[in-house]
Design a protein around this nucleic acid. Structure first.
Length: 1201
RNA sequence: GGGCGUAUAGCUCAGUUGGCUAGAGCGCAGCUCUGAUAAAGCUGAGGUCCUUGGUUCGAAUCCAAGUACGCCCA
């Protein structure tokens, strides 16, 4: 028999019980063996960065992953269940730097790259273990490594001492930790993949080799945002994170025009240090320029006319810089106009205007032409293609041109309309310089200091304030300084050190992306979800606009780029004969001439691989590996090959490629993971002339993106201000099932408002598997109160309602010894309401299957919520009496009710198992396993329900909906007539179409009961009780009569009564309007009732009802009896009696009407309240004064002996 | 600066190919119901469907311009 179910719903404790059950009974393993060898469903996991513990925001994507995997597993598919950890890259380096207190790149070199890399590996393994535990708590079923083994490995990295771990598949492995780590996630062991594995790195080599063979790898220069302290270039993403409002000294400077006495270009910049490397000056040919003479020294200046009086930063001065905290800095004066500057210097005179195009070609002298770097042929570093030019020889006015969207680069506004161009110091400058064949002069070393060739500047750091002052002094000496001012602006800073970034020319390695069309063709074969986001369009937009893929980074921890170069510095790196890409470790060993022995036994990482030298297979020259590491998106993008065994297990790869499904949080991923997957797959599958079809190159078939998790106010959650919610805090306070429901019901195209963390309210939590409650996370962060209205609502509306329905069923089934295995009452013989809920169940099953298959859990859960509500608040509510009836073995109606509710609950468990795996497991264990030992051991081992078409009856839903309309109208009428529901009323009359009438009369018991009305009468019409109003149906009349619609509407309201009555019988009526006649058919009008006489009436959906409001003495007496019963029940509830406990009722009523009612309805009262007696007695202290009818009486109960 | 998206009740959001008195949940007020419920039902208050113009018999919906916010790119 079922266990008793408490209605005290603490789901979190239940989740722990279920986790222990799954673990102890190895349910997940049983699921895997059950489906082994069946049709595969391939999921490819986007790796989570194993660098920190999971926050609550990570759980959204992981809930999708788990829910869809569980769904397909219940459909008998074989799955891989491989989680992925992203392990390499700057993210990890940054955390390790913090941990080890290493501020700069030099500090790392001093420590030793090997020690640093060990630390990175340790950290990754440590947090992989942590995230594994957190994921298990979420109910995320994956082929997890034992967290303890991962910790053992973490501790063992860096030592040769062998360690022993247990692999997920159950074998035991003993070796040096590093050697085990290198092989984690391989098919023989199982477990999560780690992007630092040798297999993953080597498969990227395979990819890069293919790129190399197609001539797509090159070494190039680019100007990148650079941090001097970090010694590294930053991506656009990283730059965006570090934008800050700051104040710089900006400068107006003049460039003397060659061959024009005392005439100058007026130039402005906020980065004075870049003037050292000026090469050209750009104008907009269409723009109008002014020729102006300063009175002080009669100098003539050229600059954009509009800028003369332009109020620079006027808007920012008033409104700030676009964020609340970015207000105009105090103490910084409002900026002057250029006119004002000249006025203050003695005044000016405008000599004339000219077009920018007239300036183009003019040559000038640069401000720092005395520096050796300006004289260097080919620029600095030397460009062998431009050896005939120097910085100085390039000094001329050029056309700034337009960007690829057609916007002019040089515009009037903040500056002077003449832009100083330093191709070695600016991104746009660099592109322009390339186009125009200008040399670049790159002044900065890795630490942002000036290199040799810059005279007194050499050694100075570009971002030092003194350097700017030095520039001003030098300019002043040369008579080129016009004005210096404080200039506030948003400037990129290093998000790690807070350093100001500079733009620095770096040499990096790139993949030429001129094969983007191939990738676009592949992107088009993919199903991008959710549709509303139009992921394909976003991806294509990126693919269209992206630049070549920069794959190198001058750091330590990451993919060792397999690029070997000749050591001869005279060699042009862009010549692909002069560098070589190695495609595998095997190839490396074959080409190796030096260093293999030191490398052997290590993973292909820095520093160990750095010493391996090779001989170029053609030239025979000795080559050294470049020290750069790879872009981490290579690591994540290769997983469709590396983790599926492309190089090692071809059969396995064929079985699982392409993945059926991937899902990831999408901001950013269109140019990160999605991009990397698509492009790498396109390259890997490239087959030359007879290239594969785009369809065969796709790495996955369907992609589901989702947005971000926000706090309750819709704002981002930050670790720094204590608003970011730790996973544990949410899991143990809100409950994982609730969280999962919330995530799966959310529209993935919209940010999810999760909840609020209260950093000032600490809590103590019991973690799963821990022996005692915790006050902080493993990392020592405080645990704080988390509240969430959306979660509370989700729990209340869905989980609690479901649970209480379940509790109701179980607790009555126990009293009645209901046996679910007994013979079933044929569904056809069950009452209409039973067939109704069973039919709705079939619809829900169909919806669940359709929506899960379409990767739209939101659509399923919307219907599931509605179903649970129908089940609880309509089916159970309307059928309670069938469960209460006293035991009678021959009561087939009662049996039908039990069987119906049982079926619904069990099926619902299975339907919802992928969504809320814990609650459904608890229910299933009690409902099914308790009574049927032969049933599958877990709800997750069951087959997903199939629709039984025989039970599907859509007509039933419509009929029930009609009954619900009648009930709703009835409740409304009672309210209007001021009659409480306990007061019985004599009659309800209803009129509607014969078809509807019949449907409603089928459910007459339900209606009578719910509305407490003695008699329900169906009538042809209610003409004697009401009058009718006719309103136009614009949707049907509009197309027919168009412009006359207004007149017809007006006419309808003033027609003589009765004229339109035939419409109610389905007969068309001709209506005269403005001399013309229009024929109206029944669907052209809406008919409603307005007036009632002695009855209350209402209508909706073509159903009219009227209820009699007249009360007879008999009805009043019955009302009193019902009140009395209700009050006794309330006392039972207050006394917390078991539902089967019998009682004695005592009262001290004196009112004659009450006494008469108690006498007449005595049997009924005792039966309803399980009372052995109903007696009058002198009142006692414990009696409660209750309202019965219109009078108060003292009432109390006692337990029956 | 360019591109994309969004704007509907106090809050969070639905609103199908343009058509009925613009809806739901939460919140608020009143009433009702309650031998599973932490529920539920009914009624009510609360709307410039961002603004302006256009197309149309008819616009929350389509078009144009503008405003605000968000994202992406520069």
């Amino acid at each position: 028999m079922f266990d008793k179910v408490s209605t005290d719903t603490s789901f979190v404790a239940g989740e722990h019980t279920v986790l222990a059950f799954w673990r102890d009974q190895q349910i997940f393993d049983k699921l895997r063996s059950q489906n082994r060898g069946r049709q595969p469903w391939s999921f490819l996991d986007g790796p989570i960065t194993a660098n920190n513990p999971m926050g609550v925001h990570h759980a959204w994507g992981r809930t999708y992953k788990d829910a869809y995997q569980r769904f397909w597993a219940m459909n008998g598919r074989e799955l891989r269940y491989q989680n992925g950890f992203d392990c390499q890259g700057l993210w990890v380096e940054v955390e390790v730097e913090k941990e080890m207190n290493l501020g700069t790149k030099n500090a790392i070199s001093a420590l030793g790259i090997d020690q640093f890399v060990y630390s990175c590996k340790k950290r990754v393994l440590k947090f992989a273990a942590r995230q594994t535990e957190q994921s298990v708590r979420l109910g995320y079923w994956m082929d997890w490594d034992d967290p303890q083994s991962l910790r053992t490995l973490s501790a063992g990295v860096g030592s040769d001492k062998p360690v022993t771990i247990k692999t997920p598949i159950g074998t035991s492995v003993t070796d040096a930790a590093e050697k085990i780590v290198a092989k984690l996630g391989n098919p023989e062991w199982g477990g999560s993949y780690f992007t630092f594995s040798t297999e993953n790195n080597e498969t990227i080599w395979t990819f890069l080799k293919k790129c190399f063979q197609r001539g797509k790898i090159y070494r190039g220069h680019d100007v990148m945002p650079w941090s001097g302290r970090g010694g590294s270039a930053y991506s656009q993403m990283e730059v965006a994170e570090g934008r800050k409002l700051t104040t710089h000294k900006s400068v107006f400077v003049r460039f003397p025009l060659r061959g024009r006495e005392n005439e100058y270009l007026l130039v402005w910049t906020t980065t004075p240090w870049t003037l050292t490397s000026n090469v050209a000056a750009a104008v907009n040919p269409q723009l109008e320029y002014v020729k102006l003479q300063a009175k002080r020294d009669s100098a003539v200046y050229y600059f954009a006319k509009e800028n003369l009086e332009f109020q620079r930063l006027a808007k920012e001065f008033k409104e700030g810089f676009g964020r609340p905290e970015w207000t105009w800095p105090t103490g910084v004066p409002k900026l002057k106009t250029i006119a004002q500057i000249f006025k203050e210097q003695g005044g000016y005179e405008v000599l004339g205007t000219l077009k920018g195009s007239e300036l183009i070609g003019l040559e000038y002298n640069g401000p720092f032409d005395d520096l050796p770097a300006q004289h260097q042929p080919g620029g600095l570093p030397k460009d062998d293609n431009l050896l005939s030019a120097t910085g100085i020889s390039c000094h001329r006015v050029v056309d700034g041109g337009r960007d690829n969207e057609g916007t002019a680069l040089v515009v009037a506004g903040e500056g002077t309309g003449i832009v100083h161009i330093a191709p070695g110091c600016g991104d746009v400058d660099h592109v322009l310089g390339k186009t125009l064949g200008l040399v670049a002069i790159a002044p900065l070393a890795e630490d942002s200091s000036f290199v040799e060739g810059f005279g007194a500047f050499t050694g100075k750091v570009a971002t030092d304030r003194q350097t700017a002052e030095f520039v001003f002094e030098e300019l002043k000496k040369k008579g080129l300084l016009v004005n210096v001012e404080e200039y506030p602006h948003i400037y990129p800073h290093c998000w790690r050190t807070g350093d100001e970034l500079v733009f620095r020319l770096v040499d990096e390695w790139f993949i030429k992306m001129d094969w983007r069309q191939e990738i676009m063709d592949v992107a088009k074969t993919i199903n991008w979800l959710p549709e509303s986001v139009d992921g394909l369009a976003r991806e294509l937009e990126w693919l269209t606009n992206m630049r070549d893929w920069m794959i190198s980074k001058k750091r330590f921890w990451g993919l060792a780029l397999p690029i070997w170069v000749d050591q001869d510095p005279s060699i042009e790196w862009s010549d692909s004969n002069k560098f070589f890409v190695v495609g595998s470790l095997k190839e490396l060993k074959e080409l190796e001439v030096e260093g293999w022995n030191d490398f052997d036994g290590h993973t292909p990482h820095r520093p160990w691989i750095d010493g391996v030298k090779i001989k170029h297979p053609q030239t025979g020259k000795v080559m050294t590996r470049i020290p750069d590491v790879g872009n981490p998106w290579l690591d994540a993008g290769i997983v469709a090959f590396s983790t599926l065994g492309f190089n090692t297990h071809p059969e396995m790869w064929k079985k699982w490629y392409p993945a059926d499904f991937v899902t990831e949080c999408f901001p950013g991923q269109f140019r990160n993971w999605f991009y990397a997957l698509l492009s790498m797959s396109t390259m890997m599958r490239y087959e030359g002339e007879a290239d594969a079809e785009p369809l065969d190159k796709r790495p996955f078939k369907t992609l589901l993106g989702h947005r971000l998790v926000m706090n309750e106010q819709g704002q981002p959650m930050h670790k720094s201000d204590g608003t970011a919610i730790w996973f544990e805090e949410a899991a143990e306070q809100i409950g994982v099932d609730t969280i999962r429901w919330m995530y799966l019901a959310q529209n993935p195209a919209q940010d999810l408002r999760f909840g609020t963390r209260h950093p000032d309210k600490p809590v103590t939590l019991q973690f799963f598997g821990a022996d005692k409650p915790a006050v902080q996370t493993d990392e020592g962060a405080a645990l704080c109160l988390v509240t969430s209205k959306p979660a509370d609502e989700t729990r209340r509306q869905n989980l609690i309602t479901l649970w209480n329905t379940y509790a109701f069923f179980v607790n009555y089934a126990r009293l009645d010894d209901f046996n679910p295995l007994a013979e079933q009452v044929p569904v056809g013989e069950r009452p209409e309401i039973d067939r109704w809920i069973l039919s709705n169940l079939q619809s829900l099953i169909a919806t669940a299957r359709d929506e899960f298959s379409a990767y739209n859990t939101q659509g399923f859960l919307k219907e599931a919520s509605r179903f649970i509500d129908d089940l609880s608040n309509w089916y159970v509510r309307r059928n309670r009496r069938r469960f209460w009836r006293s035991r009678d073995a021959g009561d087939r109606d009662k049996l039908a009710a039990y069987q119906t509710l049982y079926t619904v609950l069990v099926q619902l468990c299975k339907l919802l198992a992928p969504v809320i795996p814990f609650v459904t497991e608890q229910m299933y264990q009690n409902l099914v396993r308790k009574v049927d030992a032969s049933a599958p051991e877990s709800v997750h081992l069951c087959e997903y329900p199939q629709v039984d078409p025989a039970q599907l009856d859509e007509g039933l839903s419509e009929r029930m909906a009609l009954a619900q309309v009648v009930v709703k109208l009835g409740h409304g009428l009672r309210e209007k007539a001021n009659q409480r529901v306990r007061q019985p009323l004599a009659e309800l009359r209803l009129a509607s179409s014969p078809h509807q009438r019949a449907a409603i009369m089928n459910l007459v018991d339900v209606i009578r009961d719910e509305l407490n009305i003695k008699q329900i009468t169906a009538c042809e019409d209610l003409d004697e009780l009401v009058t009718y109003v006719y309103k136009p149906n614009q949707k049907s009349l509009g197309p027919k009569y168009g412009k006359s619609l207004g007149a017809i509407s007006k006419a309808l309201s003033i027609l003589p009564p009765g004229l339109l009555d035939p419409l109610r019988k389905g007969v068309p009526v001709a209506v005269p309007v403005d001399g013309a006649e229009f024929v109206l058919t029944p669907e052209d009008v809406f008919i409603s009732t307005v007036q009632a006489a002695d009855w209350a009436c209402a209508d909706e959906d073509g159903v009219q009802i009227a209820i009699s409001t007249k009360l007879t003495p008999e009805l009043l007496q019955e009302g009193i009896a019902r009140d009395f019963v209700r009050q006794v029940q309330q006392l039972r509830k207050e006394a917390d009696l078991e539902i089967e406990q019998r009682i004695q009722i005592l009262h001290a009523a004196t009112d004659a009407d009450v006494l008469a009612a108690l006498k007449f309805w005595g049997d009924y009262i005792r039966e309803e309240t399980l009372a052995d007696s109903l007696e009058a007695a002198p009142t006692v202290a414990s009696a409660k004064s209750v309202l019965v009818g219109a009078v108060e009486i003292p009432l109390w109960i006692e337990r029956a002996k």
